[in-house]
Design a protein around this nucleic acid. Structure first.
Lengths: 329, 329
DNA sequence: TTGTACGCGTTATCAA
DNA sequence: TTGATAACGCGTACAA
C-alpha cells in the first residue's frame, strides 16, 4: 500500500492535518515543521492521491482535449505542444481520439475541469456546462466560449508583402478553397485581399485536398498560369512539401528560379528538402495561448470571446529575391 | 451540484446502500426495487463519481497508452482502433503524447491500472510495478511483460507465396533495413527467408527511411535491378504509397506491368490511387488483441509472454498475375 | 501554531 | 432483501 499523509504524520510526530497544510504550502504552519514534513514526505516516497483530493476539492485540475482527426501533421504537432505546455502548469491533460460525443462522455467520467476542441469537431455538445475553448473557428459570430484563432488575413498579408519586397509580382497561392472549411477559405481570401491591396492579380490555384500530393499535382497548373509566377504560397505544410517535391523533379531551383513560402509555422519546416520559409503563428506560441485560455476560463468564469493571434514570418531558404532571367522560360 | 446515490435514495425511498447495490447490479436486491432505482437514477441524470469509486475500490479501470511519436499513420490508426476497442469494455483509456517518462508520471497520478507502450519507447521505466503490455518488440528474449507482435516472417512468406502463385519470379522488397529498428529488420529477414525457401533470388532495396518519399525514390533502383522485378513488396503503407506514385509517373501500370503488395493492413489501403493489396495483421484485430492482453494482465497477474499474431493477406487491385510481355522492357 | 473532527461519494461488511 | 455504518485519503473549519 502506498504512503498517505497519516503515515507521514506518524513519522514526523505531527497530526495529519498539519501534514496536509505543509504539503499544500499553507502559511499556517511553522517553517521548521513544514520543512521537516516535506523532507519526511520525500523520504517516504509520498505521492498524493488524486482521487481523494478530487473528492473533497470538487476539482480535478485536468482538462481534456478532443482530437478526432489524427491525420494532419500540423495538428499532431500542435497537440504535442499543447501537451508540453501543460507540463508547466498545475493541470494535466488527457487526450481523446474518439468522436466528440464519446470523448465528452469520457471527460465527464473523469470530471475534467475544462476541455479544448478543434474547429473540426463542431458537432460537439455545447449544452454541456463544461468550460470550453475552441481553436480555429472565428467564423461564427454568436459563440459562448472563447476561441483562439490565428489571424490568417494578416498572415497572408505579411507573406505577400514579404515576397513583393523581394521583387515578386506574380505570386500564386496553392491551397484548398471553396469548401465548407472556414479556415481554408480565410486563407485564400486573405491572399486575394493582400494581392488586391498591392495591385497584383490573383493567381490562386485550387487543390483537391490538403495532402502533399494535392500540392504536388497543383504545380503543373501553377506553371501554366499566363503570367508565370515567380513565387508560390503553399496553403499548408503538406501542400508545400508536395510543391517543393514537384519543383525539384522539374528541375526548378528553389529559391533561385521560384520562391516558396509555406503556411503553418512548425519546426518541421526546417527539415524539408529545402528548409522552408513560412508564415503562421508558431505552434509553441499557439499552444501556450490555448492552454492559457482554457485555464483562464476554468479559473475565472470570464469569457474573452475571440482572440486572434499574430503570425510570424520565419525566414529560411525557400524564398529569395526574384531573379531577372526567370521570364525567359 | 450533481446528483449522488443519496439523492436517489431519498427519491426512491430506500437507503443509499441499496441504491449502490442496485446500480452495481447486485443480486442482493429485489428485481422490482432495482428497476425502480435504475429508473429514478436515469430520471435524475445520475452520473457515478469516479473519484469516490476509485477511492474505495483501489482500482481505476483506466489504462494509459504511451504514444510518443505521433507521426506514422499506421500507428495513428492503431491508436484510434485501440481507443475504439476499449469502448466495449469496462475500461477507459487515456492517451499520452509525451515522453515515456512524463507519461508514466501522469499515469501514476491518475493511478491507471495498466499501460500499453509501443516498441519505440523502450526507454520506459520497467521498475514501475504497473502492469504493462508492449506492442511490437518480440526481439528481446528476457522480458517480464506480455508482448503483442505480428508474425512478420509469416506475413512475408504469405506475400511472396501469393505473388509466386501469380507467376512472379522476380519479387523486390523495398523497405528500411540494417538499422536498429528490430521490427523493420524482421520484415526484410522474413522476405529473404521466404524467397530463399522458394528458390528465388533476393531483390531487396534499402530505403533511407519510412516516409512515402523514401519509397518514391527507391523505385528507380528497383527498375535497375538486373532481373527486373515484376512485383514489389513495400515495407509500409507510406513507402508503398510513394512506390505507387513513382510507378504512375513513369507510366508503369499497376498491376498490369508490375504488381505491388504493401505491408501493413489498414483500411487506408483501400483509398490509395490504386487500392492496394496488402499483408499484415488487420489493425482492428491487432487493437483487440492489445486491449485484451492488457486487461488480462491487469485482472489476472498472469504473464503470457509473447503473442505472435497471424497476418492476413487482403486482396485488392495492386497485385495481379505476371504479364508475359513485361520482360520486353 | 497545531490538532480534532467532519465531509466528499462510493463500496463493502455486518446486522436487522 | 434491506439498512446502518465503517472505511478510502484528503482538505478545512473550528477548537485548542
Amino acid at each position: 500500500m502506498s504512503v498517505t499523509i497519516k503515515d507521514i504524520a506518524k513519522e514526523a510526530n505531527v497530526s495529519y492535518s498539519t501534514v496536509s497544510k505543509a504539503l499544500n504550502n499553507s502559511p499556517l504552519v511553522k517553517e521548521v515543521t513544514k520543512q521537516k514534513i516535506l523532507r519526511v514526505a520525500k523520504e517516504m516516497g509520498y505521492e498524493p492521491n488524486l482521487a481523494a483530493k478530487q473528492l473533497v476539492r470538487k476539482k480535478t485540475d485536468v482538462v481534456g482535449l478532443i482530437w478526432p482527426t489524427i491525420e494532419r501533421i500540423v495538428l499532431a504537432t500542435l497537440v504535442t505542444n499543447i501537451s508540453k505546455a501543460f507540463e508547466s502548469t498545475r493541470y494535466s491533460m488527457i487526450l481523446s481520439v474518439d468522436s466528440a460525443e464519446t470523448a465528452i462522455e469520457t471527460f465527464k467520467k473523469f470530471q475534467v475541469d475544462g476541455m479544448i476542441v478543434f474547429a473540426e469537431s463542431e458537432n460537439m455538445i455545447p449544452e454541456e456546462n463544461i468550460p470550453l475553448v475552441a481553436y480555429g473557428v472565428s467564423g461564427k459570430s454568436e459563440v459562448t466560449y472563447p476561441i483562439i484563432d490565428a489571424n490568417h488575413e494578416q498572415a497572408m498579408d505579411q507573406a505577400v508583402e514579404y515576397l513583393y519586397n523581394l521583387g515578386h509580382q506574380n505570386i500564386a497561392y496553392v491551397g484548398l478553397m471553396n469548401t465548407d472549411d472556414a479556415l481554408q477559405n480565410e486563407k485564400v481570401e486573405g491572399y486575394k485581399k493582400a494581392m488586391r491591396k498591392i495591385g497584383l492579380t490573383d493567381q490562386s490555384i485550387a487543390t483537391n485536398g490538403l495532402d502533399w500530393f494535392d500540392g504536388y499535382l497543383a504545380v503543373d497548373n501553377v506553371l501554366h498560369i499566363e503570367q508565370r509566377p515567380t513565387a508560390i504560397i503553399g496553403g499548408s505544410y503538406d501542400i508545400s512539401s508536395g510543391i517543393l517535391r514537384a519543383l525539384q523533379e522539374k528541375g526548378i531551383s528553389v529559391p533561385e528560379d521560384l520562391s516558396l513560402i509555406s503556411y503553418d509555422n512548425i519546426p518541421q519546416m526546417e527539415t524539408t528538402e529545402i528548409p522552408m520559409t513560412c508564415i503562421g503563428v508558431p505552434v509553441d506560441e499557439l499552444a501556450e495561448e490555448i492552454v492559457h485560455a482554457i485555464i483562464e476560463r476554468v479559473e475565472s468564469e470570464e469569457i474573452n470571446v475571440v482572440k486572434k493571434l499574430n503570425p510570424t514570418l520565419t525566414e529560411r531558404q525557400s524564398a529569395g529575391p526574384v531573379s531577372e532571367d526567370v521570364t525567359s522560360n
